[in-house]
Design a protein around this nucleic acid. Sequence first.
DNA 1: TCAAAAGTGTTAAGACTACACCCATGT
DNA 2: ACATGGGTGTAGTCTTAACACTTTTGA
Lengths: 222, 222
Amino acid sequence: MSYTYAYPHPAVTTDIVVFTVENNKLRVLLIQRKLDPHQGNWALPGGFLDIDESIDTCAARELKEETGLEDIFLEQLYTFGAPDRDPRERVISIAYYALMPLQGVELKSGSDAADARWFDIDALPKLAFDHDEIIKLARERLTAKMDYSTLGLMFMPQSFTLSEVQSLYEIVSGQERDKRNFRKWLLGLECLIETGEKKSVGAHRPAMLYRLKDPDNLIITK
Amino acid sequence: MSYTYAYPHPAVTTDIVVFTVENNKLRVLLIQRKLDPHQGNWALPGGFLDIDESIDTCAARELKEETGLEDIFLEQLYTFGAPDRDPRERVISIAYYALMPLQGVELKSGSDAADARWFDIDALPKLAFDHDEIIKLARERLTAKMDYSTLGLMFMPQSFTLSEVQSLYEIVSGQERDKRNFRKWLLGLECLIETGEKKSVGAHRPAMLYRLKDPDNLIITK
DNA sequence: TCAAAAGTGTTAAGACTACACCCATGT
DNA sequence: ACATGGGTGTAGTCTTAACACTTTTGA
């Protein structure tokens, strides 16, 4: 089967920058390419748009197929389309970024990926295509949005302590925050509620567990 | 001549939301479609991506071809691609927005447009495709960015008075600003310099004309 | 000399930052 | 009993918001 058009058409793909925080580092998910071009190199998960699926659906589908991840925060980032970014044919890539909760970071290796691994964002391997550029932009967007929104909460599992949130914000932004001020800010947004449960993790006072009031709403505030 | 692929490929277009301010109203440029689908309806300027041009180039080229406008602020907005947004074939539209300086709003009617006109953003006609959705998003981005950046200066001609800038900000955001505070903020960004010239427009004191220190840098500040 | 927009500082309120001690628990 | 992270309030600084009169010009 083949498809014919009166004018040349580019191929369209989505690529997804999946972030998580693990071992006090901001990490990005990469897969090792099984096929040419760039065979053996590391690349962002992603793939070609099906002709009858929406772009968002494509991003979610590719993410699931290649990594097993699903139901995580996923947002369109930017569209990349330099004429020579893929040697096979003209390819337009609609980039997304996603935030993976801290727990349950086990990956099922998907069909198109020889291997999938988390990399420290400051120690990335050589990347296929223009994926270094995509990751750079995604990181800028992530840190910018976390500065004035509760986007960072999308990294959290169902329930979490305030110290865990603070630690996450510190790791992503690279700067420390005052404990009392951070808690004042976060609780002041009124998007969290106490679960009533506490979390005990060592020889010290247990911490209150919180959860999102409304899991779908990112409250944006200064 | 025809082009054949092993898998179906979508068509890729750019569409541009061109803003200006005229008669104390925020306006958007629309063209009347000469061809089906949506023949006779109003639509955003834009068109198909050439197979060997960059996306940015395509947006700038289409803008120039259809409206004669060139060398104005132009930035990628978002990519739209609902499967049924175009009845002809699957079309991915990479939306841009542009800011047209206040003066020189005369348009040369371009080749693909039967007619091009400015519309008050609050009184748009029935639009082709999903262009109403694109305009809505563009407006949100414009107002959000103007709140914390000097993006609004991209609406200004080469030289302008501070009152003109203030008036523009008020029209776009829909809310009045304190004259002294506005001037303090704007001058405090240190992106303007006095030209030395003054502008006399009526029976009152003439205003100092300013221009951008560095026409390429959008200074982003709170 | 009048009308109309340009230009100019100060004060009060609110937001943000810095900072230190007691609490609850496990070992 | 001690070591460890959890939890809490206040005072000082900085930023933002509110506010009114004088200046310069054309008619």
